[in-house]
Design a protein around this nucleic acid. Structure first.
Lengths: 146, 146
DNA sequence: CTAAAAGTTAGAGTTAACTCTAAGGCAAGC
DNA sequence: GCTTGCCTTAGAGTTAACTCTAACTTTTAG
């Protein structure tokens, strides 16, 4: 099976402009052209999936390009690519930890507003302890502690 | 206690430029000025913490500004603010789910490279099943399925 | 009293990641 | 054979979020 740029755009949930932009940035070095027109094939999908994954992990396009270039060089860059993946894994874990921390802050605020709404005024919760007081400081993912 | 712009910048782990930019965007309507100079006080810290939280949840500055404006209006906007917080909570949960999904993809790639490194060549893993095959499709956070 | 450090403003410049326009090519259906 | 629609390119425009500069003021330490 083969797919046009607009079909792939739909699958990736981005515009055709974006796909062309990615291509311009060198993210699709192996995609076939027929009469100058991009033809995506089944063999391209594992990479499209990987690209989608890295994009959603907020990897900058330049870094993704570096990864592509490493992959093109073949077996001699296996270790480098592995290290890059390891880095990503750590980054994901850090991100999840951070999100869980911020979720606690948001959940506190949620309870705060529920109480305030019940009372009809924020006055009723003005003296609630701040979220930090109820959280383990070691969980803090940032340097903002005061 | 009171704090200068540079002290607060350090705490938030951003530059003083950034703090002034946030101020210009209306994110600090209640911060005191003495001779035109910003003086951050203890009473400002709960909001600074909240700001930090929303920033790290990728809320755009304009949306944060909307939240600030709602808060300034007082009790009549309690429900709106509550809804905004609820939205954020849902967004966090979605983000965590997505990250967990992408983690699986990265972990697959990690194992792939470990095997390839062991063999010394990617040829050894060329016919590995792709990650999708081993994942529950319902977990997919995006529309990219092929 | 003065020099350095840190603050102020308005506004220009930067960067990433799109997003779109203009001018044109090609293939399918009527 | 012509219109429609999707494709191409180069390159300009947009947006968010900073990031910095220039000119100037205020605070602080010696």
């Amino acid at each position: 099976m083969s797919y046009s740029i607009s079909e792939v755009a739909k699958m990736l949930n981005v515009s055709t402009y974006t796909i062309r932009y990615y291509d311009k940035e060198g993210l699709f070095p192996l995609v076939k052209r027929v009469n100058g027109i991009r033809v995506f094939e089944d063999k391209d999908f594992p990479w499209l999936r990987m690209l989608n994954c890295l994009k959603n992990l907020n990897m900058p396009i330049k870094k993704i390009k570096e990864y592509v270039d490493l992959a093109l060089k073949g077996d001699e860059t296996l270790k480098e690519r592995y290290d890059l993946i390891l880095e990503q894994e750590e980054s994901i874990e850090k991100q999840i930890k951070e999100l869980k921390y911020y979720k606690k802050q948001i959940d506190f605020k949620k309870a705060y507003y529920e109480k305030a709404l019940e009372a009809g005024t924020e006055e009723a919760v003005k003296d609630w302890p701040n979220p930090e007081a109820t959280l383990d400081v070691d969980e803090l993912p940032n340097k903002f502690r005061r």
